[in-house]
């Protein structure tokens, strides 16, 4: 069974980390394993924008040995961005080995409202299914209720369910049948990055 190794960059609520195991397994047949927390890499900090770069987190994840067939998910409470965009909820390598998700903007407290842990949990699961879906090979889905739809605001995330739509589910099956979830593909794709 292929694995998803979850690494938190800086402290992240254990409740959240525990919440994704079941949905990830149901959607992608991946076994979720928690790994030790790591410090947020210093060079990810962008002092001018007061944000962290998600690309650096992604690269940090890929450094070092890992078993073939393993995927890596970085989770962090800090706000992420890329040079082109003012923020990202997460970032993934399409058909690759790594993805990151930030919880920063998932909590209403980010927008000056009172904190809602239940909402954060739901949004976090949708975002994890989304980014892990990219590593499996799924691209954005037009179905608004599907976790694979593109969300650029939390309101859009709230329209997503926990489960992939039928179309995306069928694609995951196809990828599996075609062997794109095998260790060999993962090794190749991570090397090419």
């Amino acid at each position: 069974m292929n694995r998803l190794l979850v690494v938190s960059f800086g402290p992240v609520s254990p409740d959240l980390l525990d919440a994704i195991a079941d949905p990830v397994w149901r959607s992608y047949d991946l076994e979720v394993h928690r790994r030790a927390e790591r410090p947020i890499p210093a060079d990810a900090w962008d002092a001018k924008r007061q944000q962290h770069g998600s690309e650096v987190l992604l690269r940090t994840l890929l450094v070092g040995a890992r078993d073939p067939g393993d995927r890596l998910l970085g989770v962090t409470a800090v706000d992420l961005c890329i040079p082109m965009l003012s923020f990202v909820f997460g970032q993934a390598q399409l058909k690759g080995a790594a993805a990151v998700v930030s919880t920063a903007r998932l909590d209403p407290s980010f927008y000056g409202l009172s904190s809602r842990p239940d909402l954060v949990r739901r949004r976090f699961i949708a975002e994890v299914i989304h980014e892990v879906g990219h590593t499996v090979g799924l691209v954005h889905c037009a179905e608004r209720s599907c976790p694979m739809s593109l969300a650029t605001a939390v309101e859009a995330i709230d329209q997503k369910g926990e489960e992939l739509c039928d179309g995306c589910t069928a694609l995951v099956h196809d990828f599996k049948a075609a062997g794109s979830l095998t260790a060999e593909t993962l090794r190749r794709s991570s090397r090419s990055q």
């Binding site: 770069g53 998600s54 690309e55 650096v56 992604l58 890329i82 040079p83 082109m84 965009l85 990202v88 970032q91 993934a92 390598q93 399409l94 990219h134 691209v139 954005h140 593109l150």
Partner: peptide, 17 residues
Amino acid sequence: DEEIMRDSMAAWLREDG
């Protein structure tokens, strides 16, 4: 010319298909 810029932008566009 900035590597992180083009790689992250490419990744983001690839996610869109």
